[in-house]
Design a protein around this nucleic acid. Structure first.
Length: 424
RNA sequence: GGAGGAGUACCCAAGUGGUUGAAGGGGCUAGCUUGGAAAGUUAGUAGGUCGGAAACGGCGCAAGGGUUCAAAUCCCUUCUCCUCCGCCA
């Protein structure tokens, strides 16, 4: 959520920055006008209430002193007039302001590249060389089929399209990667492990920014409580501290959370229909941080190195891009994507992203901290990053580690986990 | 699913319509006392949020509605926790 005060003071600048996302945000001027009106009404309503409270108190006093309170009743009868209608008007205005604020994305960081879509992202660095083969490499779905480690047909029978059944060493590889990544972040990078609920409520989805605008992307449970299926560990994990005021001593807070994520992929019909690149259900190890405002960009860069570490240990070629304004997620101010080399696509594909929401989610979720006992609470900054998307890591390993005979070599670091060095 | 009970400030807890703009403890902070501490003692301790340049004011007793000039207190709805029974990995 945008900060109303900041918006009030810098409408033009905020609109200019938001417009870089490729939409028109000039309606925010009306929001500022509504806020003007809102504050006007508040002043009237509150001074009236103050008067009424005053007289009410006097009535109590008169009664105790056995004086006749009738004149005060006459007085108060008029004072109350109109407060109800004004309060109703106030409520309507506040709702409208709230609606606009909830539907408005985060303001892009002024320094990130301005652009329309992913083709305008800025490549920051490239690690390793695209894998070369002295044979014709197969796509992961073909490898999966010939090695019998992923069953797409039966997944369709059991659930539907965009689902997969992992089998044998395929299932083991997926499970082992979850453990490998969680161990790395928990033991070596100092994150606290979280295993959160997979059903989340509407308030949680709203705080992180999935709702109200992107309802159609989420699976909702048919139940009077209206639960949503976890679309990313970011949702339950950021919401651990919703409506809390943290002690400065507690932050930064660093969590790593493995969850299975569920997404409708409503906007990507027909895209990536083959293989397991884009599924309704996928596993992900996530990194989440709560920091003081002044520390969040250092934390972002550090988180990036933690995500990269996974690929480095797996010896997979990748690159890091700085997302342009047009490709930036709704709640985020700045995002790095990590893209891994996929031979069958002959290109780099996203395998994780690391973002700083600054105070945007903290404001929506009311997550604050106090510098010391006497200071005013301030909003924390929230960050989240992939550490990484597990299914896509499986794809990257299959495709990059495939051998001429159709087998797949297991990356050295995974061998102790896998208890084998080859899938054949 | 059935039957009961309970949610008051950091914690415990009093409080059934008007000096409660929340008693009393504990804890915490500061002072006195002490060689230093403990004990003792005195004082401070809703936090938050919204409006306001400020003074100050609005809201706040799980949440949301309602009754009333006035609600922690009366009414309605919801949520959470606890106990017992049933079911269950």
């Amino acid at each position: 959520m945008l900060d109303l005060k900041e918006l009030r003071e810098n409408v033009d600048q905020v609109i200019e920055l938001l417009n870089r996302r490729g939409d028109d945000f000039s309606y925010l001027k009306e929001v500022v006008a509504l806020d003007e009106k809102r504050r006007e009404i508040i002043q009237t309503v509150e001074s009236t209430k103050a008067k009424r409270n005053d007289i009410s108190k006097k009535i109590g006093q008169y009664k105790r002193e056995k004086k006749d309170p009738q004149p005060l009743f006459d007085e108060i009868a008029q004072i109350g007039q109109g407060v109800k209608t004004l309060e109703k008007e106030l409520e309507d205005i506040e709702q409208e302001i709230q609606h606009h604020l909830m539907m408005t994305p985060n303001v892009p960081h002024p320094d990130i590249p301005v652009g329309k879509d992913e083709s305008d992202n800025e490549i920051i660095k490239t690690e390793g060389e695209p894998t070369t083969f002295d044979f014709e490499p197969l796509a992961h779905w073909d490898l999966a089929q010939s090695l019998d480690i992923i069953d797409f047909d039966r997944a369709t029978k059991v659930a539907g399209s965009r689902f997969a059944v992992y089998k044998g060493l395929g299932a083991r590889l997926e499970r082992v990667l979850i453990q490998f990544m969680s161990d790395l972040h928990a033991h070596e990078h100092g994150y606290t492990e979280i295993l959160p609920p997979y059903l989340v409520n509407e308030a949680s989805m709203t705080a992180t920014g999935q709702l109200p605008k992107f309802k159609e992307d989420a699976f909702q449970i048919r139940d009077e409580r209206g639960f949503y299926l976890n679309p990313t560990a970011e949702v339950p994990t950021i919401n651990l501290h919703r409506d809390e005021i943290l002690d400065a001593k507690e932050i930064p807070i660093s969590y790593t959370a493995f969850t299975t994520a569920f997404r409708k992929e409503a906007g990507s019909a027909g895209r990536d229909t083959r293989g397991i690149i884009r599924q309704h259900q996928f596993n992900k190890v996530e990194l989440i941080k709560f920091t003081k405002p002044e520390d969040s960009y250092n934390a972002l860069d550090e988180m990036l190195t933690h995500s990269e570490k996974v690929l480095k240990l797996l010896k997979l070629p990748y690159r890091v891009v700085n997302l342009c304004t047009g490709d930036l997620g709704f709640s985020m101010r700045k995002t790095y994507d990590i893209e891994v080399w996929l031979p069958s696509y002959n290109t780099y594909r996203e395998i994780g992203s690391i973002s700083n929401a600054e105070a945007y989610q903290a404001r929506r979720g009311n997550i604050k901290f106090k510098r010391d006992a006497k200071s005013k609470p301030e909003f924390v900054h929230t960050l989240n990053g992939s550490g990484l998307a597990v299914g896509r890591t499986v794809v990257a390993i299959m495709e990059n580690y495939q051998q001429a005979d159709g087998t797949i070599k297991i990356p050295d670091v995974l061998v102790p986990y896998m208890k084998t060095d080859i899938i054949k």
